[in-house]
């Protein structure tokens, strides 16, 4: 274990027990302790090396029966991009009608995920 190893404590969310897993990452090596089952180890590895989340936010809508449409990334993206998605969404505007699941932005921030509408919006003139 090198001296620049980073140690972190993570709460496993796979099951209700919520094990506190201590993770040490050094280069591409990972050591973990405190988990009760292998799912905890998998979770800790993913969280420590490549945490991912579904990003959610809203996008402004023109001619909609409501002024914003809720959106999400259609797959988990690296966690560090989640805030960027909300920010990017401030600079786009969709036009009603919008269908549930309609893609509003493809391959968002190069993550391979699309930004999709999570509700339909009716058009009003």
């Amino acid at each position: 274990m090198s001296i620049d190893a980073v140690e972190r404590r993570l709460t496993c969310i796979v099951c209700p027990i919520g094990c506190i897993v201590t993770v040490r990452v050094s280069g591409d090596r990972l050591e973990a302790s405190g988990y009760l089952c292998s799912r905890g180890l998998d979770y800790a590895r993913q969280e420590a090396l490549d945490p991912r989340r579904i990003a959610i936010t809203v996008v402004k809508v023109r001619y909609g029966d409501i002024p914003v449409v809720s959106v999400k990334t259609d797959r988990p993206i690296p966690r560090r991009f989640v805030r960027e998605v909300a920010k990017l969404a401030a600079y786009i505007e969709a036009e009603a009608p919008i269908e549930l699941g309609q893609i509003l932005l493809e391959d968002i921030l190069g993550t391979g995920a699309n930004l999709v509408a999570t509700r339909p919006v009716r058009r009003i003139e």
Binding site: I56, S70, K72, L100, G101, T118, R119, P120
Partner: peptide
């Protein structure tokens, strides 16, 4: 699903 997707 999101709540919105689920309910729709």
């Amino acid at each position: 699903l999101t709540g919105t997707e689920f309910i729709h």
